[in-house]
Design a binder for these strands. Sequence first.
DNA 1: ACGTCGCTTGCATTCGAATGCAAGCGCATC
DNA 2: GATGCGCTTGCATTCGAATGCAAGCGACGT
Lengths: 346, 346
Amino acid sequence: MKSSSRKPVLAVPGRATSYDVARVAKVSQSAVSRCFKPGASVSSKMRARVMKAAEELGYRPNAIARSLITRRSNMVAVVISQQTHRYFPELLDELSRGFSARGIRVLLFTLEKESDIDVVLEQILQYQVDGVVEAARLSGEQVDMLEKRGVPFVFLNRSLRDRPVNAVCCDQAEGARWLVNRLVEAGHRSFGIVSGPADSVVSAERTQGALERLGELGIRQVAVVPGNYSYESGAAGLRLLESKLGRVPEAVICANDVMALGCMDAARHDLRLGVPADLSVVGFDGVGPARWKSYDLTTVQQPVRRMAEAAVSMIVERIEDPTLPPEKRTFSGILTHGSSARLRKP
Amino acid sequence: MKSSSRKPVLAVPGRATSYDVARVAKVSQSAVSRCFKPGASVSSKMRARVMKAAEELGYRPNAIARSLITRRSNMVAVVISQQTHRYFPELLDELSRGFSARGIRVLLFTLEKESDIDVVLEQILQYQVDGVVEAARLSGEQVDMLEKRGVPFVFLNRSLRDRPVNAVCCDQAEGARWLVNRLVEAGHRSFGIVSGPADSVVSAERTQGALERLGELGIRQVAVVPGNYSYESGAAGLRLLESKLGRVPEAVICANDVMALGCMDAARHDLRLGVPADLSVVGFDGVGPARWKSYDLTTVQQPVRRMAEAAVSMIVERIEDPTLPPEKRTFSGILTHGSSARLRKP
DNA sequence: ACGTCGCTTGCATTCGAATGCAAGCGCATC
DNA sequence: GATGCGCTTGCATTCGAATGCAAGCGACGT
């Protein structure tokens, strides 16, 4: 008889604790703990015994218990709106990749509306995450809360004016100005702009940047109509522009690619116009479909991968050293020439 | 002087524990705990005092500590390959929505290759998640591990033949047979199939289903070429088919929509063929771009939302009652008529 | 005034791993 | 064989919240 009925080897089968392993290996619990801590001082004999017992029992260190004592959960929260996620799944992929390469897990929070953020923030704080990536907007008080708790966080593509916070951005206005420059330089004189949802900072920056540059260049024929980032709203946008200007503008700037594609399709299929022969269409983001042959969109691509990588390393650095000062990193977009716009050869 | 220097109110500012709150409110720690547990027996006077102190200190219950004692982390792991995620971001959205509506957080694991699953599984077990959604394949031993640990899990669109496990699927073969039926009925006699990556079960089922039905209907002119689910491989697939058959087939069945779109573009732009005039193209999935006017693809749509919801509730039920027997739920795809295929009017 | 009942509250323990400290052990040296 | 050094190991405590149990309290009836 190996063991009396006094103590079963395992209370719950398949859920061994370090004590169970210790008992089987006839060593102390601390020894077991040390065997699973890289760089700890353990003799090879001990390690072998413990590992054997652990193997037998199917022991896995309990990350929850570990987090409690080490005050490190090795989890970061990623907050992203469904909008953003739908159009940019690769953002989440890259974040996940970056964090997991550094031994950090991602606790995901998707927002149906950006205003759901307060409930979510409460959750985040309860879960003791080591850091937060915010691809959503936060109010001043919400930022206060995070700062007061000492949780490192970084904004992705939205920042807080007049406040030193960590942020990774793509310079939307700059990209917009480029696009305008190239379009005007190629002779376009009347412009339509299809903006994104009212609560999108990114859309506002793109629209603002374009308008500003158009103003500087003395272009007067400009109309702005609202969209919501969807394909349908891009198509609808073109019709709105037509009725607003009395005719189709020579160039349409859409606040994202998907709307630009909708706009192109509306022009070609509904209005029977040539793109770029009769009108030029440009967008922002550089999503996959923009490169497809039916579209070949001229756009300003966001360096998603770099941005995600930057966000990851900014967070990780600040988990290691919370005293690092806030930092803003701004990337330029990448002007991608397609055939959806009539431009001078680059 | 409110308090002597002996004990500061908070060790780490902004990270109050239930003990801190208890001290400030001059009650016991258990009282604080009870105030944050819905349905506990607490007098309103007590609750008011505790809440006031908690407010002052910015107290949030520590979910990690709670999980340790309750043996419930209120987290589920979602495992998804980057492939799947890129083409189906809405799947993750819906899962996240469903779980968070039930007070459960999602711990995300994305796989670059499905073979990375073993490392990830190890992580999952350490994190004491209450359940797992697997949109990835698992080996028999891996399933054993999960079962031995008593962690409820459900497969999404991949199952284990000959084994009672929880799974939510879309009947791929059925959809494939439908497509073939409609195409043959409309007079198509030569077929090309662009399959997905070799390790994709879904692709195999679609391809197999189509081949089987074609065989039953006595269609002999059939070629299968490999793809990898990407737009480019859809376009390349058409060229492969052409060289394999000596000419372009009358109908091309692609193992997913994105390849179908690539195939359509290759036909129209490279080969200057009319779709559906010169060839019919169909796909699977029902992704957004398939509905765009430039494509208007005929496809078999997966009821992603229903499937995600089913997966969520299957997991949640089994967290509540682990004795529930395994269950497989299979949804039919939704045949969506577009104009990319020449079919008889429905 | 005393007993009873029911609701509140606090005490003490628990969950599982990490870690500072001190004891233990082996080995080499003189 | 005694001494000393350094590596291993175990002991005891800690992290923060939940909870069974028993004591406390108040109200009410007799």
